[in-house]
C-alpha cells in the first residue's frame, strides 16, 4: 500500500511541478525584456507542455503498450485501460521536431535583430507601434 501512495504522491508532485514550470516560463515570456531570455522561456514552456502530454498518456500501475501475438486470454478492455498510451509520445515527438524548426528560426531572427539594432533589449528595439 505504501508504494502505491508514494506513486500517487509522485504523480501529483510531477503535475504540480509541470504547471509551476509553465507558470514561470510564461512569466519569463511576458516580463523579461531580453529577447534571448524570452526565447529560453519559450523553449522551457514547450518542454513543460511536452512532458505534460506524456504525463496525460501515463497510467498508474501501468503495463507496456505491447501485445506479443494475439492471445485469447488477454482481456483487451483491461489491457486498453491499463497500458501506457503511446500516442501522446508520438505527438510529442512531432511537436519536438516542429519546436526545433521554430526555435532555430527565432534564434536567427534574434541574431538579425542584434545585427541591426546592436541590442537584444526589446525596450530599445521597439520602432513599430503594434
Amino acid at each position: 500500500m505504501s508504494t502505491s501512495t508514494l506513486e500517487v504522491f509522485l504523480l501529483v508532485l510531477t503535475l504540480y511541478s509541470l504547471l509551476a514550470t509553465a507558470g514561470v516560463s510564461i512569466y519569463g515570456i511576458v516580463a523579461r525584456p531580453s529577447i534571448a531570455k524570452k526565447i529560453i522561456s519559450l523553449t522551457i514552456l514547450g518542454d513543460a507542455l511536452n512532458v505534460l502530454a506524456i504525463f496525460i498518456g501515463f497510467r498508474v500501475y501501468s503495463v507496456p503498450p505491447v501485445l506479443l501475438g494475439f492471445d485469447a486470454d488477454v482481456d483487451l478492455m483491461e489491457f486498453a485501460r491499463t497500458a501506457v498510451d503511446p500516442l501522446p509520445q508520438a505527438l510529442v515527438l512531432t511537436a519536438i521536431v516542429i519546436g526545433l524548426a521554430v526555435n532555430l528560426f527565432l534564434v536567427f531572427l534574434a541574431l538579425q535583430v542584434y545585427r541591426l539594432y546592436g541590442t537584444l533589449d526589446t525596450r530599445r528595439t521597439r520602432e513599430l507601434r503594434g
Binding site: 515570456i29 529577447i35 524570452k38 526565447i39 519559450l42 514552456l45 519546436g99 521554430v102 526555435n103 528560426f105 527565432l106 531572427l109 534574434a110 538579425q112 535583430v113 541591426l116 528595439t125 521597439r126 520602432e127 513599430l128
Partner: peptide, 13 residues
C-alpha cells in the same frame, strides 16, 4: 525583422 520576430515569437506561443 522586428515585425517578423514579434509575429514568429507569439505565433510559436
Amino acid at each position: 525583422v522586428e515585425a517578423a520576430f514579434k509575429y514568429a515569437f507569439f505565433g510559436a506561443l
